[in-house]
């Protein structure tokens, strides 16, 4: 236990001193502040903030995540030569990266939200869903970065996987939904679409937040289907569960691989 804490603590120190972490925080802060200047209606601001977060969390967590792990690989070897359980090394890396990226986002986005709170006044529940979803999405993509880094020993293959996953969540998935709903327009595809949504954590997060607004026009295709078939409450429950699963499974699988695999640099 104390070994795990030491590894986490020192890796956290290492990450906090990194110029990238500071850059990300400033970046989040500047963008959020400018969004508050542009819009003044409370819920609309949250919506724009969320769209912005959906765009940048995957990029930052995936690419910074995999670069970080790849850089740490020689050090992981050195730790492996010490009398430490592999589990502790893995968790130390995972916890420190998660904590630092979550803090980056919570400070960069949370500070403007708190500073402007008096002027826009939205429901606390909405804010909770907003931050909760953001934190979970962050975990999803850190998990996927770990998975890519430890499934592939070859660094470029890991990076390729990460790029592929990112393209999938942003472009390929939307095109696929579009094609499916067009080609199969004469059939009842709602259940199929409900099922397909599960494979894209970004969409799960997006629907989860949009359900809070109850404005059908804002929802988009997949969110509207969720609301019609399951209703807001049940949808939100199901989607929260799926998102939790998305945050946990990549972590769990990559830990399993880390504990079993061969380490060649």
């Amino acid at each position: 236990m104390s070994k795990l804490l030491k590894i986490t603590g020192y890796e956290l120190k290492n990450l906090t001193r990194s110029k990238w972490t500071i850059l990300f925080t400033v970046f989040y802060f500047v963008i959020c502040e400018s969004l508050f200047l542009l819009e003044d209606k409370g819920e609309k601001v949250i919506l724009s903030l969320f769209n912005f977060i959906l765009l940048f969390i995957p990029v930052i967590s995936l690419f910074f995540g995999i670069t970080f792990i790849n850089n740490e690989k020689p050090f992981i070897e050195l730790l492996l030569s010490q009398p430490v359980r592999r589990r502790d090394i893995f968790n130390g890396l995972y916890f420190s990266l998660s904590l630092s990226l979550t803090a980056t986002m919570l400070i960069g986005v949370g500070l403007p939200v708190v500073l402007h709170y008096h002027s826009y006044k939205v429901a606390i529940e909405l804010l909770l869903i907003f931050f909760g979803t953001s934190v979970l999405l962050n975990q999803v993509f850190i998990g996927v970065a770990f998975l890519a880094a430890f499934v592939f020993s070859d660094r470029s293959k890991g990076l390729l996987f990460v790029i592929g996953f990112w393209l999938f969540t942003f472009i390929i998935y939307d095109i696929a939904i579009l094609i499916i709903s067009y080609v199969l327009k004469d059939y009842p595809v709602d259940n199929l679409i409900l099922f397909i949504t599960i494979i894209n954590p970004v969409d799960v997060g997006r629907i989860l937040l949009l359900l809070q607004f109850d404005i059908a026009a804002l929802m988009g295709y997949t969110a509207a289907i969720y609301q019609m078939s399951l209703g807001s409450f049940l949808s939100s429950l199901v989607l929260k569960f799926i998102l939790l699963l998305w945050a946990y499974l990549p972590y769990f699988i990559s830990k399993l691989i880390f504990r079993k695999r061969d380490f060649i640099l």
Partner: peptide, 14 residues
């Protein structure tokens, strides 16, 4: 055991 690797690396900001 003490181990000295060929190409060592440590967390770069420590």
């Amino acid at each position: 055991i003490g181990y000295m690797a060929q190409k060592p690396s440590f967390p770069e900001n420590l």
